[in-house]
Simulated scan of single mutants.
Amino acid sequence: MAKNESKEKRVNDILNAAVEIFVEKGYENTTMNEIASRAGISKGGLYHHFLTKDMVFLHANQKLIEPIYEIMRQVETFNSMKEGLEFYIGSYLRYWMERKNELIFFSL
């Protein structure tokens, strides 16, 4: 990974790698070494951003749930509760159908 890449991109790369490995191996069987390797950074680089595997897991959870919060915010723009609820349910289901690995992540 290039040194001049933004911190945000590095963190996203770490979180994406972590989600992939957590889904493949489960939380308990995932190591910080594996996350760093999959993200293409050194173990020290990983620890620079996240001190523990728990922190990686919590930040990954937060990153993946943010789009759901955005869907909830959009519901507030509807004048009709029925239309808002239909929008929410449809958007929520589409979101998770397009992200099956992330859905598995939430079951860990």
Rank of each mutant, 00 (worst) to 15 (best):
M1T: 13
E5Q: 12
R94T: 11
E70R: 14
G40N: 06
I21A: 02
W96V: 00
F78C: 10
P67Q: 09
R94P: 00
E102Y: 04
S6W: 04
S80N: 04
K53E: 02
Q74H: 10
F106C: 01
T30N: 05
Y47N: 11
S42D: 03
I41C: 11
G90A: 14
E5I: 10
M1N: 12
D54Y: 14
N16D: 12
F87Q: 09
A18E: 04
I21K: 09
E34F: 01
S107P: 00
F78S: 10
F106E: 00
M81Y: 14
N79Q: 11
L51W: 07
M1S: 15
N12G: 03
S80R: 03
S42Q: 01
M81A: 11
Y27M: 01
R94V: 07
A17V: 06
K43E: 06
E98M: 06
K25Q: 13
K9A: 15
E102D: 13
K3I: 07
R94L: 09
Y69V: 02
S6L: 09
A18W: 00
E98Q: 08
T77M: 15
K3W: 10
G40Q: 02
I35V: 14
N4W: 09
S37P: 01
Y95W: 05
L64T: 01
G84N: 11
I41L: 13
E86D: 14
A2E: 12
E102G: 12
F106L: 07
I41Y: 01
L108C: 06
V56E: 06
S107M: 05
Y27W: 12
E8P: 03
V23Y: 04
L15H: 10
L85W: 14
Y69T: 05
E34R: 02
I21H: 03
K100W: 04
L58P: 00
F87H: 14
R10A: 10
E34W: 00
K7T: 13
E76S: 14
T52Y: 05
R10Y: 03
F57V: 01
N29M: 09
N4Q: 10
N79I: 05
E76K: 13
R10E: 11
Y27F: 15
K63N: 13
L108W: 01
V75Y: 15
V75H: 12
M81V: 09
F105I: 00
T30A: 04
E28T: 09
A39Q: 03
S107K: 06
S107R: 05
K63Q: 15
A17E: 02
I21N: 04
Q74T: 06
A2N: 12
I14T: 06
G45K: 01
H49C: 01
D54M: 10
I35T: 07
K9Y: 15
V11D: 05
V75A: 15
Q74M: 07
M1D: 09
I68F: 13
V75Q: 15
Y92T: 01
K3C: 05
F106Q: 06
D54G: 13
G26C: 03
S80F: 04
I35S: 07
E76Y: 14
Q74S: 10
F50L: 05
H48F: 10
E70C: 07
I14C: 08
I65D: 04
F87W: 12
Q74A: 09
H49Y: 15
S6K: 11
E66Y: 13
K63G: 04
N101P: 06
Y95P: 02
N16P: 00
L85K: 14
M55V: 03
M97F: 12
E8F: 07
